[in-house]
Design a protein around this nucleic acid. Sequence first.
DNA 1: GTCTATATCCAGATAGAC
DNA 2: GTCTATCTGGATATAGAC
Lengths: 211, 211
Amino acid sequence: MPYLKKVIPAPEPVDCRILTAALDLFVNKGFHNVSVHDVQKQAEVSIGSIYNHFGGKEGIAKALYEHLLLEMQDLVDCAINDKTTAVERCNEIISQLFHYTETHRNIISYIFHPRHNEFITDEPPICNSAPFVTIRDAIQQGIDSGEIRACNLWVAASAIYGAPIRMIHLRLDNVIEEPLPNLLDEVLESVWQGMLAEEAGIHSEKKLSLA
Amino acid sequence: MPYLKKVIPAPEPVDCRILTAALDLFVNKGFHNVSVHDVQKQAEVSIGSIYNHFGGKEGIAKALYEHLLLEMQDLVDCAINDKTTAVERCNEIISQLFHYTETHRNIISYIFHPRHNEFITDEPPICNSAPFVTIRDAIQQGIDSGEIRACNLWVAASAIYGAPIRMIHLRLDNVIEEPLPNLLDEVLESVWQGMLAEEAGIHSEKKLSLA
DNA sequence: GTCTATATCCAGATAGAC
DNA sequence: GTCTATCTGGATATAGAC
């Protein structure tokens, strides 16, 4: 019955179903509050399959992590290739992250989960992984070219990405109720121009009080 | 032998020993990787005492959380009382948090642990707790008085505290190797003045490319 | 490769003496 | 209030049929 092949959708491959179910459960209940049985039920596979494919719960978490880091790397590479200046590149990356937060909530939530090494053993901090290194490289180039204020690289990276990342966390916690892309322009403005009110003459005066 | 009273240090009260041990273990191994027996051993008390005092592992976590939030509230209140302008208040709070990160690492690590509701049930997000509300109130006053750029309150809060909080996380992960107070001035400068290089005439041009 | 049934272990919690 | 010994549930992981 060859026609059926077109009518009945091809079932997702087993390992993909497992990863999808695990991502959903890990993000919403927390890794340690999810049992292999939970994953098994939601993915509609047997326990045996899970152990065959991934060797256990931590194996799933690790495979997920590596897979999603690759996706993140793609996102960053695209942003870098499409733009030329450091400011434009950072803005594009932040814009993409904001969109992803709305459309791929689970992915962002898993990647930006702060303590991967609580459940993936021997994992280096995520900010040393490839996509995050690429991001810092772009910032360093911006500093070298004089586009970005000269300062400690960690300070620069935090100053540029700290506010957006904070907002992503707040959005994931449902504390911010507005979709992040709506707030993009305001955030970028504050990142590059700072938070002081732009009243004439106020700048030099305020600058003194910073010390 | 009354003299001994002065020579032998009074033992810390039991519940204090339990909380101290739990904080250390939770922060360094992760809540779910710590058993009640681990706490029992490190605190040198019996399991029975733990259940008597706190009712269980989650009870410890909750008591710790509430205790440390009170400390945080003190820190914020002092900063607010000592200063008058919104900028000064924010700077003082950030400065105190940076110092705490160096001197009370475990406390900061526990408070800034992003997912308390993974182990404390029915806990509202920490940014709705008293000290964080106080912080946002201070920002709102700064906006109302014209001191801080008028924008969405969440954007303002993230723009001001996002970078410092990001740096605290990086420092807790041992990614930043320098003590945070050394980087304070640079961070505050970027928060208030933004990250664009301050070349003459560049501002208006760059501003266009932000859109 | 996939499944079910089962073994093993350990964490959380309790009982009851002191 | 504090302790030790014990119970119980549930999670990881495996064995072995298909």
